[in-house]
Design a protein around this nucleic acid. Structure first.
Lengths: 205, 205
DNA sequence: CGCATTGGATAGTGGCTCTATCCTAAGCCT
DNA sequence: AGGCTTAGGATAGAGCCACTATCCAATGCG
């Protein structure tokens, strides 16, 4: 398959594919001659992964390049997962120190998670402090509920990524899964707010 | 207070304040003379609200303008809340039809929420379908757990917004609250994933 | 009395993701 | 064989967005 067909199958403009090639997101096709290259089904998949990470998850080119490079360099899954989390949690900038929030520690103990420093844990600490400073109350009970649910979801997610077919799958599952669950909660909260508001404002007043 | 001091107090560059004035995000100061204007503490608060909506929640200028205009026009709280939800849920584009997903209906019944069409509900429907199409399983139990938690949170949120001091407060609570809770879940999920992954990949292999 | 500041207008910046143009080399089709 | 199409390579431009900077005449304040 050559560039034009790759463009057709993936729905990405040919010029954009060239751009991705230039930026190193997409590996070069197999060069048959100086002016002819062959692309494979792998390229189509790669392109689809790129699209999801761009459009759905909202990563930028540099972040995607980093993740794909790690995947192609055969980085260990654990490191890859950590990298995915770093970009999805947007930790490029705030390279958070090792803040300790009692609430976050409590969560780890409660869930019987390994007591291990991680970017995710730092991020949780920072976030809980931010919410505190904005006067958004987060009760122990709520954290309990959330973390229990996340424990269940993560169990499934990680189990799904052990199937070793493709490392791309790990990126997809972790990044898209995180994003989708977070968005799901957003929508449920909106619906809950709307429901409470209707009760209060319409029936009450 | 004049422009320079307003800039100092709010930490926003004077040129940016002018930009916000031009864009209609910030009401003009009281014109004393043709070349002198007085700004008040209200302007400082407004500016802070704008900053939070921009930097933290990530709304764009047009979205913020819309919300502030509604607030200033004395729109009813219910309408304002709906507007906040529309922008935070990013529903400008996908003006979703009235899709019906059994799962979403089940949530509404389960929580005993009023059976009322709303943008939030449409968004939930669309999102559940999207997750389905991406093969991300969402069990009834998980939806139950999430929605119960959101019911509790929303109860507090909405109660907080009935204090009628300021409509700005409603915008802040609704928008920031939604965003912060969603991000909290993201971080918890990351931590949960990391914890499961450590168990599986380190101890297992 | 002159410096600083204002509103108003307009233009420029910088980051980002594309998208378009131009070029030569070379295979494919008839 | 000859022309159409496509490849790669390089470079430039577009379009969006949120600022940021510059210039201006008017004018109050110290």
């Amino acid at each position: 398959m050559q560039l034009k067909e790759l463009s057709g199958q993936s729905g990405v403009a040919a010029a954009s594919i060239k751009y991705y090639l230039r930026e190193g997101l997409l590996p070069a096709g197999e060069t048959v001659h100086a002016t002819r290259a062959q692309y494979s089904a792998r390229h189509v998949e790669r392109l689809e992964l790129i699209q999801v990470l761009r459009r759905t998850v909202g990563l930028n080119i540099e972040q995607i390049r980093g993740l794909l490079k790690m995947a192609d360099d055969g980085a260990p899954r654990l490191a890859l997962l950590a990298a995915v989390q770093r970009v999805v949690l947007d930790l490029d900038t705030a390279a958070s120190g090792d803040v300790r929030t009692p609430a976050a520690d409590a969560v780890v103990r409660l869930r019987n998670w390994p007591d291990y420093p991680s970017d995710a844990r730092s991020a949780l600490n920072v976030h809980l402090e931010l919410m505190e400073s904005l006067h958004i109350r987060v009760s122990r009970e709520l954290l309990d509920t959330y973390s229990k649910a996340m424990d269940d979801v993560a169990g499934l997610d990680i189990a799904a990524t052990t199937a070793p077919e493709s490392v791309d799958q790990l990126i997809l599952t972790a990044a898209v899964g995180m994003h989708m669950h977070s968005q799901l909660l957003l929508k449920l909260l909106a619906l809950a707010q709307a429901s409470h508001a209707i009760r209060r404002y319409e029936h009450g007043a």
